[in-house]
């Protein structure tokens, strides 16, 4: 493989890794606080892509405004899912909430088939984003630079919120001990809603960029990226934001590079993430950067 080809693959891998990372953050934040795999997270990612599509085609919004609107509406959807399907089950066994989450995921998928129809659609892409640039023999899309940059900005913003603001402090406190935090006078439910809102907004941002990079959207598009991003979150260490980003990047690298170096493996691409999951769970169940979550007796 020539060095130019390698660099092109590297850009693809970083783009894909950023998108996984953004979704993974939502999983890791929710799991850190509620110990719940938010199965519907992949669906919020899908909704983000659909919302920008309709904002552009139906509402005729300019592109940037459409993106912001799509992120905002998806964020509200994420909060609504928590309120309706998870909040009543806070005191129920953890698996009940997980089954509810699976139900919500199927519900949103199928409702999307009913409302949006199952036909794949193409999101409008501004020309300057997808005009191939040739830099000394390396052909890349501007998107391949912009996606990681946007991701970086979003992650920095998120870290600022989590580590430098009061609500962020409350989030970290809840993930340590929800009852004590409640006793300290923190409005726990509001913070949980905020967590879902932020996580969903990031997933929607990822969905929008995914729709630009791989321009077909359909109601099932959230399923595999969602599952894989969850695996990325576990790989990086569930509960850790840095871990989610690193896990996402690593998964992106593995998927792109393994196929680039061993083209015969391309049929097995969707299995890589799951193999990775099983390996990490057996070798180091807390993930690369995770803290040990103790069993409550």
């Amino acid at each position: 493989m020539s060095i130019n080809m390698f660099i092109q693959h590297l850009f693809n891998a970083i783009t894909l890794g950023s998108l996984y990372g953004l979704i993974a953050i939502g999983y890791t934040m929710v799991y850190g606080i509620l110990r719940l795999i938010n199965f519907a997270h992949g669906e919020v990612f899908m909704l983000g892509a659909y919302f920008i599509f309709f904002a552009i085609t139906l509402l005729k919004l300019p592109w940037g405004l459409a993106a912001v609107a799509a992120v905002a509406v998806s964020s509200l959807c994420g909060i609504a899912v928590d309120r309706i399907a998870y909040k009543p089950l806070r005191d129920a066994p953890r698996i009940s909430a997980l089954i509810s989450a699976i139900g919500v995921s199927f519900f949103i998928q199928n409702l999307s088939i009913v409302v949006f129809t199952g036909l794949p659609r193409a999101v409008h892409r501004p020309d300057w984003l997808v005009k191939v640039v040739n830099m000394g023999g390396i052909r890349i899309l501007p998107l391949a630079v912009i996606v990681p940059l946007v991701t970086l900005l979003l992650v920095l913003g998120l870290l600022w919120v989590v580590y430098r603001t009061k609500p962020g402090l409350a989030m970290r406190a809840i993930s340590k001990d929800i009852e004590t935090t409640r006793l300290m006078g923190v409005s726990v439910n509001r913070i949980i809603a905020l967590t879902f809102g932020i996580g969903s907004a990031l997933a929607a941002a990822s969905g929008i960029m995914w729709a630009l990079r791989y321009p077909q959207i359909h109601p099932f598009m959230g399923l595999f990226p969602g599952l894989k991003a969850f695996i990325a979150a576990v790989f990086g260490g569930i509960g850790s934001i840095h871990g989610a980003v690193v896990g996402g990047m690593f998964l992106g690298l593995v998927e792109i590079m393994a196929v680039a170096f061993f083209p015969t493996l391309s049929g097995y691409r969707d299995a890589f993430a799951f193999v990775l999951l099983i390996i990490i769970l057996l070798m180091k169940p807390t993930g690369l950067m995770g803290e040990k979550l103790e069993d409550k007796i």
Binding site: R35, R94, I95, L98, L227, G267, Y268, D270, L282
Partner: peptide, 28 residues
């Protein structure tokens, strides 16, 4: 033998992962 060391929701995801791997292998 490997996955039952896990508990709760992790087990769910790992077994789901295995089912997907089986499907990918069958396709190939």
């Amino acid at each position: 033998i490997p996955v039952l060391r896990l508990g709760g929701d992790y087990l769910g995801i790992a077994t789901l992962g295995f089912a997907e791997i089986i499907r990918v292998v069958l396709t190939n």
